[in-house]
Structures are given as structure tokens and as C-alpha cells.
Computed example of a mutant assay.
Amino acid sequence: MRLPLTTLGLAALLLAAPSAFAGTCPKDKTLTVARDIPLRDSVSVKRQTLAIVDITGWRGTSDLRLRTRKLTVGKGGIVPTHEHHDRPSIVYVLSGEIYEHSAFCSVPILHKTGEWTPEFGPGHAHWWENKSGKTVVLLSSDVVPPEGLDKPEDM
């Protein structure tokens, strides 16, 4: 089986990178019931799909895809409000630092280069904000149905 060069490069990068769990919500700020968070639109975010694997039928899954994308978040950029109640994801901070505004944390959570964070579960909603003054690059892998794949204008 031949893997695309992009997939091999991504795998090598993740294996060579530090394996640090991303910043977490302070215990005294963690919420047990999801709070309402502001709806934020996308600002200064470029999305590039690196790889898509069709996992339809694998271990009984329905029509799903495993997708890895590179998100480049410009200065002052915002990854819009979105949910992960039925879309498991892992985000890796390739460079920079960015704040996550989570429905389960009463304060912003700082994520830095080399850290990763899982995103999944009932009520899991959030948005991300780049306050660093520098571009931030994220790698995001998620499981989506075909209709959830990027449209050309989103890339």
C-alpha cells in the first residue's frame, strides 16, 4: 500500500514532535454542565486539507471520512464556534499559541506549540482565538460524513 507523501510527512512530524497534552482548564474553573458560549464567525483562518481516508464500513461505521487539515490562524484570527458532540477530533499546535473558549471552562485555555487536545463529547462546543500577535498553525484530524468535508471556498 502506498501512502501519499503528505500523510507520511504528517506521521513523521507527529512521531518526532513532543507528546504534550495541551493546556487544560484549571480544576476550579471546570464546569460540569456546558455553558452558553458566544457564536463567533471565522476570522483570518486558512484551511488546507492534507489527507482524507474513507472509513466507510470499517468496524461497522457508516459513511464516514477521517480527515486531516492544516489550519493557519492569522494575527487576531478566530476559529469559529463549533461543536464536537458527534465529531471526534484531535488538534495539534504545530506553531504558536492560541486560546480556546470552551463550554466546559469558565476561563480561556491557552494551548502552545507541541501540545495536543482531544475534542469530543456531549455539549463539547468551543471557539479558538489568536491573541499572540503571530500566525498560529494547527493540525486537526477529525471524523466527518462526506457532507462535512470542506467546500472549495473553505480551503
Rank of each mutant, 00 (worst) to 15 (best):
residue 96 G to C: 12
residue 97 E to H: 14
residue 85 H to L: 06
residue 115 E to T: 14
residue 81 T to Y: 03
residue 90 I to K: 00
residue 118 P to I: 11
residue 98 I to Y: 11
residue 122 P to H: 03
residue 92 Y to W: 12
residue 119 E to H: 13
residue 108 P to F: 12
residue 102 S to K: 02
residue 93 V to E: 02
residue 93 V to Y: 02
residue 85 H to N: 11
residue 110 L to G: 01
residue 108 P to L: 13
residue 116 W to G: 11
residue 104 F to K: 00
residue 88 P to H: 03
residue 86 D to V: 09
residue 93 V to S: 07
residue 103 A to V: 03
residue 102 S to N: 14
residue 96 G to R: 00
residue 88 P to N: 09
residue 101 H to G: 09
residue 101 H to N: 15
residue 104 F to C: 02
residue 121 G to M: 07
residue 116 W to H: 08
residue 122 P to L: 09
residue 113 T to Q: 15
residue 96 G to Y: 08
residue 107 V to A: 07
residue 101 H to M: 13
residue 87 R to D: 06
residue 111 H to P: 06
residue 80 P to D: 11
residue 86 D to L: 02
residue 116 W to I: 05
residue 122 P to F: 06
residue 85 H to C: 05
residue 100 E to W: 08
residue 81 T to C: 01
residue 116 W to S: 13
residue 110 L to P: 06
residue 81 T to P: 04
residue 99 Y to H: 12
residue 81 T to N: 01
residue 82 H to F: 03
residue 95 S to L: 09
residue 92 Y to T: 03
residue 104 F to E: 00
residue 114 G to C: 05
residue 119 E to C: 11
residue 83 E to S: 15
residue 115 E to V: 08
residue 116 W to D: 00
residue 92 Y to K: 03
residue 83 E to G: 15
residue 86 D to A: 08
residue 111 H to F: 14
residue 90 I to E: 04
residue 93 V to L: 11
residue 82 H to L: 03
residue 80 P to C: 11
residue 92 Y to Q: 02
residue 90 I to Y: 02
residue 109 I to K: 04
residue 102 S to M: 05
residue 117 T to H: 13
residue 97 E to L: 00
residue 111 H to T: 08
residue 80 P to R: 15
residue 121 G to H: 01
residue 86 D to P: 00
residue 82 H to M: 09
residue 92 Y to H: 10
residue 98 I to F: 07
residue 109 I to E: 13
residue 84 H to V: 00
residue 88 P to W: 06
residue 103 A to N: 01
residue 80 P to E: 12
residue 100 E to C: 10
residue 92 Y to M: 03
residue 80 P to G: 12
residue 91 V to W: 10
residue 111 H to I: 08
residue 115 E to L: 05
residue 113 T to Y: 01
residue 98 I to C: 03
residue 100 E to S: 14
residue 98 I to E: 02
residue 97 E to V: 00
residue 114 G to L: 06
residue 102 S to Y: 01
residue 122 P to A: 11
residue 120 F to W: 10
residue 85 H to M: 05
residue 107 V to N: 05
residue 87 R to T: 14
residue 93 V to K: 09
residue 120 F to M: 03
residue 102 S to A: 10
residue 113 T to S: 13
residue 97 E to A: 02
residue 95 S to K: 15
residue 108 P to D: 12
residue 111 H to Q: 15
residue 97 E to N: 13
residue 109 I to G: 06
residue 112 K to H: 04
residue 111 H to K: 15
residue 111 H to S: 12
residue 112 K to W: 03
residue 82 H to R: 12
residue 107 V to R: 10
residue 97 E to G: 04
residue 98 I to T: 08
residue 84 H to C: 07
residue 81 T to Q: 02
residue 89 S to T: 06
residue 101 H to Q: 12
residue 118 P to D: 06
residue 94 L to T: 07
residue 93 V to T: 05
residue 95 S to A: 10
residue 116 W to Y: 13
residue 85 H to Q: 09
residue 81 T to K: 00
residue 114 G to P: 08
residue 95 S to Y: 06
residue 81 T to F: 01
residue 103 A to G: 03
residue 93 V to G: 07
